[in-house]
Simulated assay, not measured.
Amino acid sequence: MKREPLGILSSLLVIVCLLASSCKQRDSITFTAAERQVADSLVRAARDIDSLTRLQVRLEREGDILGSIVALRVLGDRFRNESDFDRALTTHSEGLKQAESILDTLEWVQALNNVGTDYRRMGILDIAQEYHYQAWSLCKVTTDTSFVAIKNQAKSLNGLGNIYLTLGNYERADSALRKALVVEQQLGSMVGVAINYANLGSIFEHRGEIDSAWVYYRYSMEANQKAESTLGIALCHSYFGSLYEQAQQYDKAAQEYEAGYQLMRGSRDEWHKLNLLVALASVHNATRDDAQMLQYLDQARSNAEKIEDKEHLADIYT
């Protein structure tokens, strides 16, 4: 499912109009914390995608709109974690539609950020930026001070920061990511802290400030280890490998990339595994080990074609 870009100005006008016509609803929480917890517990008890899909259909049919929205959010997350971005986008977009229809800001913002993230993973950055910006705009006017509402602020800023980073706008990326980091630190979210440290490290790496990049990547590894995040630890190994590769310490680079890939080997998250496969191909190319390079490239190409990842395919073909 593809949604055409609205343009940031028109998107903001939509938000302003909705807020103006429903300020009373906006100043109150649509559902109590207890109701949200019940819906979340019910949805997360579903073991797999099939059972979760059936549950969502039943909840929607029974008129449990909150349960339906939560189910769509979690279901979309599972599709994205398995690199099925088309179904993730379709599912998250339906959740956005339902959350917007009842003007539930908490789920509305989460859905906006999820759709934005889906578009980012698909490499469609202009539309992704609009959704994250809409999410951030809603965060700034809501009166909700719950953990999830504050977390939404960090996710919006992190999404924007990632886009600015990809586009090479390092000044704006640094500003957004540091604001997100402060929010994550206030919440005590180690995974969120780790993500923002890693992104800030990437800014330093792109600027050629390698010593600072090492510092922030190590901060990220420490936070990921505290959070026991396998994905985060694997990604940090890839960041370390990148710095070693730039220093032409290819043996150490290969060791780091391989350590990250082994942690991800059994994961269905093909998108993140692709980064490591391409990195392994790159370092073997640098050492002129053509056999190993082609082996990793062939595997990467197969995975990228399976999830229709054009951005990674371009790197692989290059």
Rank of each mutant, 00 (worst) to 15 (best):
148 V>D: 06
148 V>H: 03
148 V>W: 04
149 A>Q: 11
150 I>R: 12
152 N>G: 11
154 A>W: 03
155 K>V: 02
155 K>S: 02
157 L>S: 12
158 N>H: 06
158 N>G: 10
159 G>L: 01
161 G>V: 00
164 Y>H: 11
165 L>I: 11
166 T>D: 10
167 L>M: 13
168 G>M: 04
168 G>T: 09
169 N>S: 13
170 Y>D: 02
172 R>F: 03
173 A>E: 04
174 D>L: 03
175 S>W: 06
177 L>I: 03
180 A>Y: 05
181 L>R: 07
187 L>H: 10
188 G>W: 11
190 M>W: 02
193 V>Q: 03
193 V>N: 05
194 A>C: 04
197 Y>Q: 04
201 G>M: 06
204 F>Q: 09
206 H>Q: 14
208 G>N: 13
209 E>K: 08
210 I>F: 00
210 I>T: 04
210 I>D: 05
213 A>E: 01
213 A>I: 05
214 W>M: 08
215 V>P: 00
219 Y>A: 05
220 S>T: 10
220 S>Q: 04
221 M>F: 09
223 A>Q: 03
226 K>W: 00
227 A>E: 01
228 E>A: 01
228 E>K: 10
229 S>I: 11
234 A>M: 08
234 A>R: 07
236 C>F: 07
236 C>S: 11
237 H>T: 11
241 G>E: 07
243 L>E: 08
244 Y>T: 09
246 Q>N: 14
246 Q>T: 15
248 Q>V: 13
250 Y>L: 15
253 A>M: 14
256 E>L: 05
257 Y>D: 02
258 E>W: 08
258 E>H: 10
273 K>Q: 13
